[in-house]
C-alpha cells in the first residue's frame, strides 16, 4: 500500500482507470462488430446471387423468353424481361430527368429563398420517402382506373418516374450549388442572357455530377418491383412496345419465378437476380468512375 503510494508520487502521470479503459475497449469492439454485422448480409446476398445465378446465366438465358414454356420446363430465359426493364427504365429517365433537372435549376438559380422554393424543397424531401407501392397505386388510380388505359410498360414508367424525380432534383441541386458564382457573374457581365448562361455555362460545368446522380437514380428504380406488379403486369413473351399491353421486367420475372415451387423456376429467379445486380452494379461503378473523373476539374 505505502509502496504503491510512493510510486504514485514519483510518477507525474496518473493512470487512466481500468474501468475507463475497459469502457473504451468495449465500445471499440462493439463498433467494429457493428461494421462486420452489416457486411455479413451483403456478402451473403452477393455470394448467393452469384453462385446460384451462375448456374443458369448463359447466352440462352439472355436471348430466350419464356414464351410457350411452363414453369417446370428446363431452359427458357429472361430476354423479354430484360427488354422490358430497359425500355421501362429508359422511359422513366426520359420523363424524370428533364423535370428533375429543371426543378433543380429552379431551386438553385431562380427560387432563391422564395416561399415556393422552400415548399418545393420540403416536398422533394418528402417525395423521396413515398413507398413505391403508393406511387404504383396512384398511377393505378389515375392512369388505369380514371383515364382507362391498359397495363403497359409506360404505366410502370410513370410510377418509376415519381420515384426517380426527387433523386434527380437533389443531385442537380447539389451540383449546381458547387458551381462558383464568379462563373455566372462573368457570363452576365458579358451580356449573356440568364437562360443561356444556365444552359451553356452552369449546366455543362455541373454536367458530370448530374450524370452521376442520374445513373445512381436509374440504378435505384431499376430494381423496383411493386409498382410494376400493379401497372405492367406480366407476360412470358417479348413485347417490344412499352405503350401497349403487359410487358416483362426483371423484377417481376424474379417475383413470379421465385414464388414458383419448381426448382427450374427458382434457378431462373437467381439467374435473373444476378442479371439485375450486374446491370445495377455496372451503373453504380460507372457513376463512381465518372465522379472520380470530375474531381480534379473542380479541385
Amino acid at each position: 500500500m505505502s509502496v504503491k503510494g510512493a510510486e504514485l508520487e514519483l510518477k507525474s502521470l496518473p493512470r487512466v482507470s481500468a474501468r475507463r479503459r475497459m469502457a473504451d475497449r468495449t465500445v471499440q469492439s462493439l463498433v467494429y462488430a457493428a461494421f462486420v454485422i452489416a457486411i455479413i448480409p451483403l456478402v451473403s446476398v452477393l455470394w448467393m446471387v452469384v453462385t446460384r445465378g451462375m448456374e443458369r446465366l448463359d447466352l440462352d438465358f439472355l436471348t430466350f423468353s419464356m414464351n410457350g414454356l411452363s414453369s417446370s420446363d428446363e431452359g427458357g430465359g429472361a430476354n423479354h424481361a430484360i427488354v422490358g426493364t430497359l425500355q421501362q427504365v429508359g422511359l422513366t429517365a426520359v420523363m424524370a430527368v428533364p423535370l428533375g433537372i429543371l426543378t433543380g435549376v429552379y431551386l438553385v438559380e431562380y427560387g432563391g429563398n422564395s416561399r415556393l422554393a422552400r415548399v418545393i424543397t420540403f416536398f422533394v424531401d418528402v417525395m423521396t420517402g413515398i413507398p413505391s407501392i403508393v406511387a404504383g397505386l396512384f398511377i393505378l388510380a389515375f392512369w388505369l382506373l380514371a383515364l382507362g388505359f391498359e397495363y403497359s410498360g409506360f404505366a410502370g414508367a410513370l410510377a418509376l418516374a415519381i420515384l426517380m424525380m426527387p433523386t434527380v432534383v437533389r443531385a442537380t441541386e447539389e451540383m449546381l450549388k458547387l458551381v462558383p458564382n464568379d462563373l455566372r457573374e462573368a457570363s452576365y457581365a458579358l451580356g449573356v442572357p440568364r437562360w443561356r448562361t444556365i444552359c451553356f455555362v452552369v449546366l455543362p460545368t455541373a454536367l458530370t455530377g448530374i450524370v452521376t446522380g442520374v445513373m445512381l437514380a436509374v440504378a435505384r428504380v431499376m430494381g423496383e418491383t411493386a409498382p410494376l406488379l400493379l401497372l405492367v403486369f406480366i407476360t412470358d413473351a417479348i413485347n417490344s412496345n412499352p405503350f401497349e399491353g403487359p410487358q416483362g421486367s426483371l423484377p417481376t420475372f424474379i417475383w413470379y419465378q421465385a414464388g414458383d415451387p419448381n426448382p427450374q423456376a427458382i434457378e431462373r429467379a437467381w439467374a435473373a437476380a444476378l442479371t439485375l445486380i450486374l446491370i445495377i452494379m455496372l451503373l453504380n461503378l460507372g457513376a463512381r468512375l465518372l465522379a472520380r473523373l470530375r474531381k480534379p476539374v473542380s479541385r
Binding site: P98, L99, G100, L102, T103, V105, Y106, L107, E109, Y110, G111, L116, A117, V119, I120, F123, V124, V126, M127, I130, V134, A135, L137, F138, A141, F142, A146, I162, M165, P166, V169, R194, W195, I198, C199
Partner: peptide, 25 residues
C-alpha cells in the same frame, strides 16, 4: 426557361397533391 423551371417544380407539387386526391377518390 424560367417558367419551365418553375413549372417543373409546380408539377412536382401537383403530383404530391394528386397522389392524395386520386387515392382518396
Amino acid at each position: 426557361f424560367a417558367h419551365s423551371a418553375r413549372g417543373s417544380g409546380v408539377v412536382l407539387l401537383a403530383i404530391m397533391a394528386a397522389i392524395a386526391v386520386f387515392l382518396i377518390w
